[in-house]
Design a protein around this nucleic acid. Structure first.
Lengths: 103, 103
DNA sequence: GACCTATTTAGCAAAATAGCTAAATATATA
DNA sequence: TATATATTTAGCTATTTTGCTAAATAGGTC
């Protein structure tokens, strides 16, 4: 499976999208992430593995824990590239303008 | 299923992402789209229905044909909103700058 | 080394997805 | 109205995905 497919497959699951949200603020241990969801530890572990294989998160061991960190550039690049490949520059410009107005 | 879930589920399939690519240039009849893929007409029809329910395409009848059209604003808004919700403004800005340089 | 905690891997069941063919529907035309 | 074309719907099968529990692995501590 190629890179873009891995990214969009990873983003297709709502639990995984929410994991990315949780990681937005700071890196977190697998168990800490799991504690925020109803589903079992092993299930969270597999979601994390899928996000990692899509390179949307990275991990590092810290003592007894494994810390997961969001990789926002990879997310922004993969999704952003797809978006600009399909939506015309015009549409992308309009979006930027609208979101500036919103702010 | 909510709107954002429908969008990301729709984008998870490579055939559907390619259909969006094909529709980038102009609207096309279902059969014309199907002709560009190896898979059967009914399968293409279901992919189109999924894209439509995610509001990434719209359709209209024209005589004997049903023409499908890309809805780039909906795509850009759904995916763009998600991206800005997760990636910091910094990252988004860097992306814009990089893609300007590339151009 | 023995034990405790954190996490992943293995193996299984249920649900969702994507493909197919055949049949149904809708429009156009003779 | 009968027929032809375009597309969708129905019904089926194979594969993938997601969840679970139990077992394995890795590191920290007594």
């Amino acid at each position: 499976m190629n890179s873009i497919s891995r990214v969009f497959k990873a983003l297709a699951d709502p639990t995984r999208r929410q994991i990315l949200q949780e990681l937005k603020r700071s890196e977190m241990a697998a168990g800490e992430i799991g504690a925020r969801f109803e589903i079992s530890g092993p299930s969270i572990s597999r979601h994390l593995a899928i996000l990692k294989s899509a390179e949307l998160v990275s991990d590092r061991r810290s003592g007894n824990h494994i810390l997961y960190r969001l990789e926002p550039h990879n997310l922004a690049n993969a999704v952003g590239d797809f978006l600009s490949a399909i939506c015309s520059t015009q549409v992308m410009q309009q979006r930027k303008i609208r979101s500036r107005r919103r702010t």
